[in-house]
Design a binder for these strands. Structure first.
Lengths: 219, 219
DNA sequence: CGGCATCCGTGACGATACTG
DNA sequence: CAGTATCGTCACGGATGCCG
């Protein structure tokens, strides 16, 4: 862990966060606690040894903490500390900037949670008012989301309460919906999206959390 | 330049910006165009070969451009593109977060421009209304700064017009002033700060651009 | 399953010497 | 001053194995 050894806030932040994979680990935890093996599969290409090193490093610098889930399994998990949550603006800035890049080359891996992370990071203030508890099943992953008026809260796994809206689709369809390249009506009609709940709430969801898109939404 | 190969805005941004030194180069350019040798001395520890590689990389990705200064010397210089300027929120987020860290260990190098970069990045909105053209001579570096009502503009070297305020001090004194650990009155009295212009404007300057500080301002 | 150590090949990095 | 060439070193990625 080489330091820049500069008396500069930016350099000091990068001393902690600047190494490979580090900010992507934080990204993974923004949606809620994750287990070790979850992180490994969410970060393809990363060696297990390196992940362990990074986790200890981030724990030491108060970005995340190791906890055991309260459930019956009593499994180990990692979650952001308050200081870690304060990195959301940094991730949001990166996401906003990254949205301006060209479409990625084909072959890049895509995970269900990633568009959701970006949607939440780049969502406008008013998204906090989206107070319908929503459960999303994208491909094989399930997440939930809920605006409490102050901020948007999220978690992995099934919603903690019966959700008011349930959306089910595959990763590509969700991505197209998020970018506005596909409408809810079209997606439902072609059976690529299942909506359990009010259709107009689903429309509102994709309207509020729309991802920036270089391409036009379809002439 | 290894890519994460993920369809994720954050990961794609880090594909361009995530490698060592990259964001620090952007930091150096936020105050205005810089020459190759300036960058080298501003980034102690970085090899000249690597700097050349990074500059080409960032030029290719439209973060900065290589220009020749309009002056008589016709020297090569690097400056941010519009897309590069859009990285200011990212740097601001990092600076804000880095400000929450403990004081750096002694021995870290400190440059005149660094506190100024952070001051501008973390300044409140109203700092844009600081419309006094101010020239700062900190140690051996000279910079200027001016709020045009919309944003704070900065540049390296002497001010392009006769400034309304001129501040002269050494790096440590400036740092202490910026953090509010030293008052303008005390600094002037102890001859560590020279103010050419109105004293209350100087006070306003350090009030607007105050750096966050973990330690109390002095009991 | 979670977590960590070890080995090894590759590539990124740091320092210095060299050139237009 | 603005870079390029070279080389030693270290971080990383991949695989494997050990231990709770």
């Amino acid at each position: 862990m080489r330091s820049y050894e500069q008396v500069c806030f930016v350099a000091r932040a990068l001393d902690v966060l600047g190494e490979r994979w580090t900010l992507l680990i934080v990204r993974e935890l923004t949606l809620g606690p994750r287990r070790y093996s979850d992180l490994l599969t969410s970060l393809p290409g990363m060696g297990t040894s390196l992940l362990a090193t990074r986790l200890k490093h981030l724990e030491k610098h108060d970005v995340l903490r190791r906890t055991t889930t309260p459930g019956p399994g009593r499994v180990a998990a990692y979650e952001l500390t308050e200081r870690g949550e304060q990195l959301l603006p940094v991730l949001a800035g990166l996401a906003q900037w990254g949205a301006g890049l060209d479409d990625p080359p084909p072959g890049y891996t895509n995970h269900a949670a990633w568009p959701m992370v970006a949607m939440r990071l780049t969502a406008p203030e008013q998204a906090a008012d989206f107070n319908t508890l929503t459960e999303l099943t994208i491909g094989d992953e399930t997440l939930w989301l809920h605006g409490d008026g102050k901020q948007v809260r999220t978690g992995t796994g099934p919603a903690p309460l019966p959700p008011g809206l349930r959306l089910t689709s595959d990763t590509n369809t969700f991505h197209a919906l998020a970018k506005g390249r596909l409408t809810v009506a079209d997606a439902v009609a072609s059976q690529r999206l299942d909506v359990a709940g009010e259709l107009h709430t689903a429309r509102l969801f994709f309207q509020l959390f729309r991802l920036p898109d270089g391409q036009p939404p379809k002439a």
